[in-house]
Design a protein around this nucleic acid. Structure first.
Ligand SMILES: [Zn+2]
Ligand SMILES: [Zn+2]
Ligand SMILES: [Zn+2]
Ligand SMILES: [Zn+2]
Lengths: 138, 138
DNA sequence: ATATGTTCTGTTATATCATAACATTTTAAT
DNA sequence: ATTAAAATGTTATGATATAACAGAACATAT
């Protein structure tokens, strides 16, 4: 949470109450949450905010590298290693819904090299692997 | 298109008019299309079908390996190498909207190894790289 | 302290993407 | 002809995401 404040300040932005609360909700969840799930949990504190409120907070958190979007699920997850920059990939379990954030250098490297050899200038990388996690294989 | 008929038959399914038309639309487009874009183009032939029609056709085409979904765009694209099985990745240009399907063995390999070392049993892989394509860099 | 520009919030409305459910038709095999 | 599976048609609804604009909170510069 200290990291969050620092990263916000580094961007010249503020780590406000809503943003903090959304990040807490993401970090407390064991699996990715949809924007409207987050809304539901915000509601417990106050009157249910409009969707914009959550989407704006999420935009900020993602921008600051404090959360990630899982495109294949239309869901969001708190970053598990927010210190410093990183290029994360996700292992998403179809059975229990959990999503493990990994930082696999070989994947990142292969992606860079593939893009480079195609003359493609990379902005963002989406690497989401779905399947069954170790816990759910018994 | 011959490939499409064969793959359909191999699944014990039919390559019907709507499915064929949707695949034609995808293959004719130079960039990924949203489901409702496809609907718009179907309309030119007949009365505008309900969204279900397109989603059902897309489900079929994806199942048969004739088209792919781009999760990060909520869009769909015709497969550029539908013969045989393959594990594709995408280079999606933020400038012109084009999406190049590549089959990069090193990425596929790194993904397999990462999953294996995490004890994760893979079902699907989503690898979508966004940025600027060679054509748009001048 | 106050004027100023920027960031952030509140709110209403709307756009976009996707599926549920059920009745009907087509097809292929017996 | 009968039957079961596959495919379609249709209506309605659910789920996800953004536009647009007014106002409040905050920083900082005079
Ligand atoms: Zn992260
Ligand atoms: Zn699991
Ligand atoms: Zn393909
Ligand atoms: Zn381009």
């Amino acid at each position: 949470m200290k990291t969050a404040e620092n990263k916000s300040r580094a961007l010249g932005l503020r780590f406000t109450k809503t943003r903090r609360k959304v990040l807490e909700i993401l970090w407390q969840s064991h699996s990715p949450l949809g924007a409207y799930d987050i809304l539901d949990r915000l509601q417990e504190d106050s009157r249910r905010p409009a969707p914009m409120v959550v989407y704006r907070a999420l935009d900020f958190l993602i921008e600051a590298g404090l959360a990630h979007r899982l495109s294949s699920r239309n869901a969001f997850i708190g970053c598990s290693a927010p210190e410093g920059d990183h290029e994360a990939q996700f292992l998403i379990c179809n059975h229990c819904g959990s999503a493990a954030e990994v930082e696999a250098r070989p994947i990142a490297k292969a992606v860079e090299e593939t893009a480079a050899s195609a003359g493609f200038h990379v902005h963002q990388r989406v690497v989401e692997i779905t399947g069954v996690c170790p816990n759910c294989q018994s």
